[in-house]
Design a protein around this nucleic acid. Structure first.
Lengths: 126, 126
DNA sequence: CTGCATCCACAACGATACTG
DNA sequence: CAGTATCGTTGTGGATGCAG
């Protein structure tokens, strides 16, 4: 369970620590930009600028910020080529690839239920 | 693709509208609280208060807000029992259940790579 | 018990400018 | 080209109070 951070019984310090860590990781990963980056990197290695072009609407700042976070969590690998101008490439690690499977599932889901959801929205807004 | 909103060619109004809708839905769904609610509802029907208890750290406001959004998108069904005090139950619809599969995948992923990620973080923070 | 509205603190975000 | 820093704005989210 990622939903609960604290168990019923009082003295399971290890379990609660693991749970709060799980929640922390989940919160890192379960956000729009992080998931879109992971989805974009699914096809293979991309440079910073390519990622910016690939992900519509992301700002320079959000991209770097989320890339750092993903790198910190070991989901993407950052490769700097010491040329001029600099060339920085990002690739999914194995954990990143594994997460990408489920993210891809979410994208599929979005398209499968697109019209269904669209209809539901119109109904609700009335 | 959920990443791109605008195609290369200029005059594909329908496609770009579908894409921006896809992105909109993805943005709705790809957030911490929404996913945690869906995961929590995976087991079955829950009342408002039960959800609040089940999902550690969620505030009254965030819960209602996200429940409305999920209801609007047709992912959860809201059942009001006209008793006093009121009793409101939330259940996943079929689209909601489908999404829940992939969300569950993310939770599994979190636990599978927990220690791996924890180690990566320590390495990075040094 | 559930839901809506209000207020307010603070974090997120975009824009911009500057460095290697 | 990529990254960092700063600033100002917007928005998110928590706390509280009130209503059904």
């Amino acid at each position: 369970m990622v939903t609960k951070q604290f168990k019923g019984s009082p003295d399971e310090a290890d379990l609660t620590r693991a749970d709060s860590l799980a929640r922390e990781i989940f919160s890192d990963v379960a956000n729009k930009w992080a998931l879109l980056i992971i989805e974009a990197l699914g096809e293979g290695t991309l440079r910073f600028g390519q990622l910016r072009d690939e992900i519509a609407g992301i700002s320079h700042k959000m991209l770097t910020q989320n890339l750092r976070m993903l790198e910190r969590n070991g989901l993407v690998e950052r490769n700097v080529h010491p040329t001029v101008p600099p060339r920085v490439e990002y690739t999914l690690t194995e954990p990143g690839q594994a997460l990408r499977e489920t993210v891809h599932g979410m994208c599929d889901w979005t398209h499968r239920y697109l019209s269904h959801i669209d209809a539901s929205r119109r109904r609700f807004d009335a």
